[in-house]
Amino acid sequence: MKRINRPGRLAKLGLNHAVALFAAFIFTYPVIWILMASIKPDVEIYREPLRLFPSRIDVSIFQRIFQTQPIAHYLVNSLIYSLGAVVISLAFALFASYGLSRHEFKGKQATLITILMVQMIPALVSIIPIYLLMQRLGLYDTRIGMVILYSAIRIPWGVWILVGFIDQIPKALDEAAIVDGASKFRILWQIIFPLALPGLASAAIFTFVGTWNEFAIASIVLRSSTNLSMPVGSMAMIAGDPNDWRMVSMTATVNLLPVLAVFALLQRHIIAGLTRGAVKE
């Protein structure tokens, strides 16, 4: 870029920043607005839409929704669903990925293709049979059922992320352990598991956020307010009083904060997990 003279370069730099700032504004403004709206005094939220920052912070709505609505329940449920799905789906996925990565056998390609295809077709398209299946298994509107379903849905993602990681662990390590007489379970536990931890971390974060945000399936499979997940329960709360914008904003904020926190802290892992799960590089 030597040919570009100094003023030209400055203009280009300015343009880059201008475009980037504009895009950043469009992407984040609604999110920041709702975070702020949840702590604004009433007058400002209803009458001053262009004011972003509140003149004083009013968190009374936060106390109110936790006192009058089962939102704490929804939070706990969502934690159970998300963490349950993380632990169970990754345990299954780790075993499967080890089996797939460390063996050559007839049907390996077919198994991998099946897993990939199931992963790519959203569970949403078969929501009706899933609903019926949950009913027949006695899992409809139960917390354990929701955990099982979310785990099953997330297994293929986990396998895709982990197979790639385990492939990169040198086989010489397992072979040495086999010579020492270690069983495959010991190899998996003592060699593969610790070395696959970075992969497990991105799979875990990815699974957590995906499950935490899931709405459509939970809205069909759950019914009683003691079992509702955070988004579905929030929808019920908002439907009860859609014009209470402060309550709406605060509810959205409570949904949003955990995900934003996870994202801010662990952004790199999420992106790694996604690109690995989506396109193998």
């Binding site: 499967a96 089996g99 897993i115 199931v118 299946l133 099953a152 495959k184």
Partner: peptide, 16 residues
């Protein structure tokens, strides 16, 4: 190693 995951996958995802 593979069958538990595959079972969950086939039963809860592919079968529907």
């Amino acid at each position: 190693f593979i069958l538990p995951a595959l079972f969950g996958l086939v039963f809860m995802r592919a079968f529907p």
